[in-house]
Design a protein around this nucleic acid. Structure first.
Length: 631
RNA sequence: GCCGACGUAGCUUAGUUGGUAGAGCAGCCGAUUCGUAAUCGGCAGGUCAUCGGUUCGAAUCCGAUCGUCGGCUCCA
């Protein structure tokens, strides 16, 4: 049975879960070491917070200068100097008022602010704030009287600790990058310079981490997406609005075919809805007041306002309402790969990972209350089927709960929240999949789970979201006639296991490093005639492959014939660069024997093979969506 | 949206302290007809993101706009 493994965490800043406590202590101490170095270089520096994070630490700084890459080297050098002095990390406890006076004397206004919070509230935590490690433990609701500091050389920092004893215990570090960050995570506050550093206990680990970063760069879907002609953007079309090239469109179609097959098996029906809708619908759904700023401005037609749809749910609800529903109709599962538009902040956009227009693997399940747990569980199992198929070995669920003290942000119905959360919890426990819990992350209308998945190089992504919605049934009067002849409300489950095409394809590109399994490969086979005299035979081979019965989304094997006047070696190279699964060499020997010589992109030579055998092989890979592994 | 960096042919990029652009790959043409990751030669392609300013002169300096990237914030 699974247990929550972490609470209230944000994916990006999770302290490395497997790191021993000493490593985290070392990272935190490295943050102080860096701050000490910065203080020596810029004595007027003011300090924000500087916690340990995954792979290292950061420190938020208010400096008189804008740091450049060159400054990182300078700071790093100073850090080494200080490290080698074997500075002790000295713990000092002070009454809070004395602490405030001391920090005021040093001009550390941010620390003073934190101390005042500690004095008044006993905590510096702000809602959803992460990485604030300078909190002194206090379970009382009131303020704290005593706070602790750590002194490293001349640098004195408000800090709970713990720390290493001496600076030379900080093993290997490297300053990574500079970024902007708002003080206390609030965009109304001043922006500080955040310096990230990596810290590991051995050089090998640091090197491995740097290698991982390098590998991630190589796999970046924006780079591969361009090299493999999967998608593009156009300034003239607009920010965040991807254009899918033919290769990318193939991948979308294969994913959509997969979704249709799996959803059919799970009893879904398919629907289609329009891209624009009157404002009225979104007032009714309750989205407009919450999300108006995140929607494209309305189009006015004949005195009415039409919005580009930011989600499909209200439309599906209209379909639900189009006729009277009986308990016999439930669960009703409506699926649609729905195109939606959201006006995301420009700075949030990132390749296909974050776009303003995207196509969701959406569905809404309408069910009786007593069916909700099983339906939710079934959705979880569907996720797992997809992940197994794609070789995604590591995944867990993030259970997003509301912050019930903030009912302006969430629908104010505490009992319903609790009931819905209980259903999800039961389903999670029954599923056996691991999960974490996150407070204050729920949708405004209900709790949700996100599946967090890890690509083969360990990059973590939140791809899909599943929500249990108890609000829609009231807002839209979604009900059914029960056996008792009375109307009953339904639960609505929102789910999108494959997320959006945009984000999922971005994930797959990085996960596979562009080496797509045969069923997803935009081009599955290329025929390479050795010289002009083999073209006729090559055409025969092409015809047989092209017209073979293979159940791809595009209606047959995706095969090309490379007739360019290039050397065979060059054509092989071109196919390798494009990561095409099968290279079929045809020359004199093949033409004579009526076979093809098969080279895999792995470099493996399968030698000569009858064309029919090759077709059977590709058919098997497409049908099972698993590549046949050759060692 | 905010802070910072960046923006040279389809792609990757060179271009000293300002003196109106060079290359590789891709493309096209020609020769080569090749046995498992690049045959050779030629041609063409850039209003240096856009607009404005400073200057005798701007890819180089300044400003605005658009876009990209690293973060922050956000993510129904």
């Amino acid at each position: 049975m699974s247990q929550p493994i972490e609470k209230g965490t944000e994916a990006k800043n999770i302290p490395a879960p497997l790191a021993p406590a000493e490593l985290e202590r070392m990272r935190h101490s490295a943050a102080h070491l860096m701050a000490a170095a910065v203080q020596q270089l810029w004595p007027t520096a003011r300090f924000g917070v500087g916690p340990a994070v995954k792979n290292g630490f950061y420190y938020d700084l208010d400096l008189p200068v804008q740091l450049t890459q060159a400054d990182l080297g300078k700071i790093e050098q100073k850090m080494r100097e200080l490290k080698n002095k074997k500075l002790p990390y000295e713990r000092i406890e002070l009454p809070v008022d004395e602490a405030i006076a001391e920090m005021e004397r040093r001009g550390q206004t941010y620390k003073v602010e934190l101390l005042n919070l500690l004095k008044e509230k006993g905590s510096t935590a702000v809602a959803k704030e992460t990485g604030d490690e300078d909190v002194i433990g206090s379970n009382e609701s009131g303020g704290v009287a005593q706070v602790s500091f750590y002194k490293t050389g001349e640098f004195l920092d408000l800090c709970r600790g713990p720390h290493v004893e001496s600076s030379n215990q900080i093993a290997v570090f490297k300053l990574m990058n500079i970024a902007g960050a708002y003080w206390r995570g609030n965009e109304k506050n001043p922006q500080l310079q955040r310096l990230y550093g990596a810290v590991f206990s051995t050089k090998e680990e640091l090197d491995h981490y740097l290698w991982q970063l390098e590998e991630a760069r190589k796999r970046d879907h924006r780079k591969l997406g361009q090299e493999l002609d999967i998608f593009t953007f156009s300034d003239d079309v607009g920010q965040g609005l991807p254009l899918w090239m033919p290769n990318g469109t193939v991948i979308r179609e294969e994913l959509e075919k997969l979704a249709k097959e799996e959803e059919r098996r799970d009893g879904y029906v398919r629907v289609s809805t329009p891209h624009i809708t009157k404002d009225k619908l979104y007032y009714r759904s309750g989205h407009l007041p919450y999300y108006r700023e995140d929607m494209y401005a309305p189009i006015e037609i004949e005195g009415e306002e039409y919005f580009l749809k930011p989600m499909n749910c209200p439309h599906h609800h209209q379909l639900y309402l189009a006729r009277l529903r009986s308990y016999r109709d439930l669960p009703l599962r409506m699926a649609e790969y729905g195109q939606v538009y959201r006006y995301e902040q420009s700075g949030a956009l990132s390749g296909l990972m974050r776009t303003r227009g995207f196509n969701q693997n959406d569905a809404h399940l309408y069910c009786r209350y007593d069916q909700a747990k099983d339906e939710f569980l079934k959705v979880m199992r569907l996720h797992a089927r997809y992940y197994d198929m794609m070789g995604i070995k590591e995944y867990y669920m993030r259970f997003s709960k509301p912050d019930l003290s903030k009912l302006d942000k969430y629908v104010n119905e505490p009992e319903k929240w609790l009931a819905a959360m209980e259903i999800i919890k039961q389903a999670m426990d029954e599923s056996g999949y691991p999960y974490v819990e996150a407070e204050g992350e729920a949708a405004f209308y209900g709790p949700k789970i996100d599946f967090m998945i890890k690509s083969v190089i360990g990059t973590e992504y939140a791809i899909s979201t599943n929500q249990l919605d108890f609000v829609a049934s009231e807002r839209f009067e979604l009900s059914y006639k029960g056996e008792d002849g009375k109307d009953h409300p339904v639960y609505v489950i929102h789910r999108a296991p494959l997320g959006s095409h945009e984000r999922f394809v971005a994930f797959l590109i990085e996960h596979y490093a562009g080496v797509f399994p045969t069923w997803l490969a935009p081009v599955q086979a290329v025929i390479i005639p050795i010289s002009d005299r083999h073209k006729e035979y090559a055409h025969q081979v092409y015809e047989r492959l092209f017209s073979s019965e293979v159940p791809t989304a595009t209606g047959g094997i995706r095969v090309l014939l490379d007739e360019a006047r290039e050397s065979m070696q060059k054509k092989i190279r071109n196919a390798q660069v494009k990561k095409i699964p099968y290279m079929l060499i045809v020359g004199d020997k093949e033409a004579e024997d009526g076979v093809v010589s098969v080279r895999l992109r792995s470099g493996v030579d399968l030698k000569a093979m009858p064309v029919e055998e090759l077709i059977d092989r590709i058919r098997a890979e497409v049908k099972t969506r698993q590549d046949i592994v050759v060692s």
